[in-house]
Design a protein around this nucleic acid. Structure first.
Lengths: 308, 308
DNA sequence: ACAAAAGTGTTTGGGATACACCCATGC
DNA sequence: GCATGGGTGTATCCCAAACACTTTTGT
């Protein structure tokens, strides 16, 4: 049906929409769930923030496209992305009819630090997202809904953490994603009895001041006194509340903040330089790893579900 | 970017894939979960069975396209479809690069009977699906997985039943979808305590020999003696087993059946004429309705989940 | 000494499961 | 009467939620 002539034009008997991909990349810095955005350099929506993504090539699947674009635009090299679905609003792109296939992905902390090509790529805390280009607000709502569902069935969390992590890091991650608070002891028990964690033998120094804590420490302790206080409200807020239309009801603090401050950008690159490493207070905890074998065993033997 | 010239050609600076939709329509006849398929009248895959669907127009969303194509090809008029996702395999259509956005939908029994335009549209029992065109086998696996997940959280079942139904009809539906068997009494209790059902006042005749039972009765009683025996194996079979590659291991009965028989077609239209109405045996049960208000109350007040 | 964070065990209540008897209908 | 299927209650068990004290570290 399609014919390619020499003038680099592509001709079809029937109109074809353009197909793009967009990728919602989640990260976790030990405190908040974050999303990777890029600042658009061209129209439409020039200057606004958007998910990395772009036009699909004929010789690649949508998944491959999402991974390629992510690499090109942010330097992140991920092995897999999960599809959220197609978004086909008729006027979602003012240029032409564009159907986008949206994905989401999880970037571990180590990977977060790896991004160097990301000139205009920044991580935004999930409750400090600026207004986005296209229908990306809408896509983000779907992505949040999806990650909250997936975390019950799949070991989503471990892709967001380093290989080794403490139980409280894991718990903070779950709490960030689900927006709730768990009893520390019950969380511990529940996690352990899933059989998807294995404890790391305590080889004294190994985990101590390693790079693991770098991102975690960055800035966390500045606010730590008020951490629970600040976010307590958020913890029981629904997705819709979190993503109410700009200036919507019920969240006056957001309205008061001017856009520039609201769009405060934590650039992935600058992470390296800015950080000091005050250790977390208190007793250092055991460290754990994701036990892939244990997970497979669980998955095979019946319906695996993390019941939170 | 796109330019339309007078020769009914559509020209783009970059190659565009075609975009289609496909819709997996589930039905339930009181015994088996069914899927609506159409026989392809043109190449490619002429003569093979496929999901209803077709090319998306520029002035419609993918959802609208799926609903429109469903109407055109089968006569079914549905109000909503749910998206499964985009399938973007490079060679999934031999003609040109085609990305399809797949949907699934649920058709109530009454609606099933309504289809008159469906010349080559047939319902197939979920464990008697012929080999399908394109990558539709693959899509069907996703659809089955999805409906099994959705049924836990959403009142999926009620879209497949008539307005009024008996508890055992509902149970059979759940058992068909999930492939398991429930204790009748526990199922009853669990369903009732969700608060999403309301009992229908017994106005004697109203529900008795009404059209409700028509489809249900068709053919069910012919096999009823052996119903549980025949399907017991299937009940605990996983999706992958159910959809093993043609001639795969472990299901010798299928291998023995020649394709023509295997593709036995229960045409939606002929339902009207063929049926006799032997009532179900035993004591006639209470009838229930889906309680939309109760469902909304449940959904708002915390995480609604049907735990099966 | 004190604050902060982490490790651990017990109790208890509610919900899921297993199970049995009686009733209504058609033949 | 008998086969078939529907309606209901109870006992049990397990899991999840609630909850407190001790230990380690840094200041």
């Amino acid at each position: 049906m399609a014919t390619e002539n020499n003038k680099e034009k592509y001709v079809y008997d029937y109109p074809h929409p353009a197909v793009t991909t967009d990728c919602v990349v989640f990260g976790f810095d030990g405190r908040d769930l974050k999303v990777l955005l890029i600042k658009r350099g061209i129209e439409p929506f020039k200057g606004m923030w958007a998910f990395p993504g772009g036009f699909m090539l004929m010789q690649e699947t949508a998944e491959e496209c999402a991974i390629r674009e992510l690499k090109e635009e942010t330097g992140l090299e991920l092995k897999s992305v999960k599809q959220l679905g197609a978004f086909s609003g008729i006027h979602r792109d003012p240029r032409e009819r564009v159907v986008t296939i949206a994905f989401y992905a999880l970037a571990a902390k180590t990977v977060i630090r790896g991004g160097d090509d990301a000139a205009d790529a920044c991580w935004f805390a999930i409750d400090d997202i600026p207004q986005l280009a296209f229908d990306h607000d809408y896509i983000l709502r779907h992505a949040m809904k999806r990650i909250r569902e997936d975390i019950h069935f799949e070991p989503v969390g471990f892709d967001l953490l380093d290989e080794e992590f403490s139980m409280s890091e894991l718990q903070r991650l779950y709490e960030s994603i689900l927006g709730v608070h768990f009893d520390r002891r019950n969380f511990y028990k529940k996690m352990m009895q899933t059989g998807i964690l294995k404890e790391v033998a305590d080889d004294s120094e190994e985990a101590g001041t390693s790079a693991d804590d770098v991102l975690y420490d960055r800035g966390v302790n500045k606010k730590q006194n008020t951490f629970y206080g600040e976010h307590k409200e958020m913890r029981n807020r629904s997705i819709d509340e979190l993503f109410a239309p700009q200036g919507g009801a019920g969240h006056s603090s957001k309205q008061a903040i001017p856009t520039d401050t609201f769009c405060y950008c934590e650039n992935a690159i600058s992470f390296h330089d800015e950080m000091e490493k005050p250790r977390p207070l208190g007793r250092p905890g055991k460290r754990f790893r994701f036990d892939k074998e244990g997970y497979n065993r669980m998955k095979e033997s019946g319906n695996f579900r993390l019941e939170f």
